[in-house]
Nucleic acid binder design. Sequence first.
DNA 1: CTGAAAGCGCTAACAT
DNA 2: ATGTTAGCGCTTTCAG
Lengths: 330, 330
Amino acid sequence: MKNGSRTIRDVAAMAGVSVATVSKYVNGTQRFSPTVEAKLKDAIDRLGYRSNPLARSMITGRTRAIGVAILDISNPHFTNMVKGANRVALQHDYTLLLVDTEEDPARERSLIQALAPRVDGLIISSRASEEMAAWMLDLGKPVVMLRRVQGLAIPNVGFDNRLATYMLARHLLNLGHRHIAYLGFGAASINDERVSGARDALAEAGLALDIYDTHAPTALAGEQACSRVLLGPKRPKAVICYNDLIALGFMKEAKSLGFRLPQDVSVAGIDNAFYGEYVEPRLTTIDTQSEKMGELAVQKLIDALAGRADVEHVMLEPRIVVRDSTAACV
Amino acid sequence: MKNGSRTIRDVAAMAGVSVATVSKYVNGTQRFSPTVEAKLKDAIDRLGYRSNPLARSMITGRTRAIGVAILDISNPHFTNMVKGANRVALQHDYTLLLVDTEEDPARERSLIQALAPRVDGLIISSRASEEMAAWMLDLGKPVVMLRRVQGLAIPNVGFDNRLATYMLARHLLNLGHRHIAYLGFGAASINDERVSGARDALAEAGLALDIYDTHAPTALAGEQACSRVLLGPKRPKAVICYNDLIALGFMKEAKSLGFRLPQDVSVAGIDNAFYGEYVEPRLTTIDTQSEKMGELAVQKLIDALAGRADVEHVMLEPRIVVRDSTAACV
DNA sequence: CTGAAAGCGCTAACAT
DNA sequence: ATGTTAGCGCTTTCAG
């Protein structure tokens, strides 16, 4: 019963054929005489035999698995990507193997290096800069990155971060806001893009953007940053946050501080995490199409695996989701 | 530069030693003369050699990886478990390979069977019943389940679901509630335990529990179930939900329907997901110690891998987190 | 301390 | 249509 030790040889012996025959049968590489086929079938399920993919991979060089490394499994942005990736992978009969690097560069490297040989290709979400990510080129496996790393010849599917904050800023401008702040997460490389999008929109209106920073892309960090923003010398009437998590924390603390939302201060996030609909006021945000991102990444990787060339860079467009946390400036 | 094709033989050739020597050096199995050690070291990083874990596993039978199968990567309960599991695994120098079965039994089976041969042991979260999960015994690898499956000889770390809802019901009873409903998720096998905990508490007070069901453990399902509960013939004054997600949706819809929370209806969930603190009213819930669960599961698996026997069943205790969504019955 | 050789379970020519 | 055989990259006795 135990599959623990049944090998292709056991099956061959039991069915009275050669191991090659079993192999071909198992892989459907060839057709067989009904007699042999029946014996094979019988032997296989009597023995509960399952072919060992490791041994198989050693020869074929293919694992039929795709590795995905994400920065934080508790961040909905990443889990949505995984959902999308999983769907496409399964469609193509690939197994998605996930690894959570927990925003730790050292751990990221060792986990990815452990993952690489076990899969046919990798999808990586990382904060690493060009130099910090150079080792990824030596993985010996095709890689798709989940954002563009300048100067690195790795295909990627990214998101137009600049446009995202640009849109948010324009939205607030349209609502009559003049004092707009950006609460960012400087450790993320995409933070700069998000800053500049908002800054550009304000600049076009002859206004300046006030910039604040958090130490993590989490709700707690947003909470902790709130008083600094709202009780500081230049209190904004609208705040664009690095992501929904930070926005969530920010809003909670703002309410504790006695601010009414959105009358006293408008807040917007980025990600379109599901809980944005369940808080009060419902969060205005940017849909980053995370699921689509995962889908495209896998598609791209599968194409690469099949030797099909593909464009290097795919950029997804933001879509604003206006809800109740942003309102006209009074 | 490319690690793509460097084998132990390349290193041996370059260093002028045998493959056996390289192997022993790489694995630190033995000490070497300074001369050889230097040559080895040199050859290895000149070639950028990394040993192929697949080939290694074929012989040793060990992968140094642990497989984890979760039901839904976007459910915080599971991601918290992964966080805990990851921590302990890394401490012991194991790589955690994750797979999201998306609540689909067929997919669950094929994913787990694909995962099993690639890891030393598995941690599985599943809704499968005794018969449906019997195949897990044939994986040929040690397994730790993340809940108890009656009649199945698989070690597990579980959670006292009965006590959880019992506590919640007692809490509501203490607040003076007499009309208490349970909004469950019948497809989960633990749902029965949760039902009976609440029912027992009410029975002790001479009261009966009204039971409703959702089709999924999601916020959307909670939303959709709300009117049925609150606008039906026997409107409860307090509702215990299967989990925080359902509670979240339920609360949102209840507010839309014009109910004031918690004055008109008290709501409680289970899981202690982070967003419970960010909604209004803040959600009363049960801390299921998901992270701890992940930690214990990995610890248990590692013990099993090391041949150390261990207790079969570990049960974690619930802790109630009282916030604002439950209030005295008026 | 170092090396030769025998496989791990499987696939892929190449026979037959 | 089926079998033989040579490895994949590595570890592991067992000799030296």
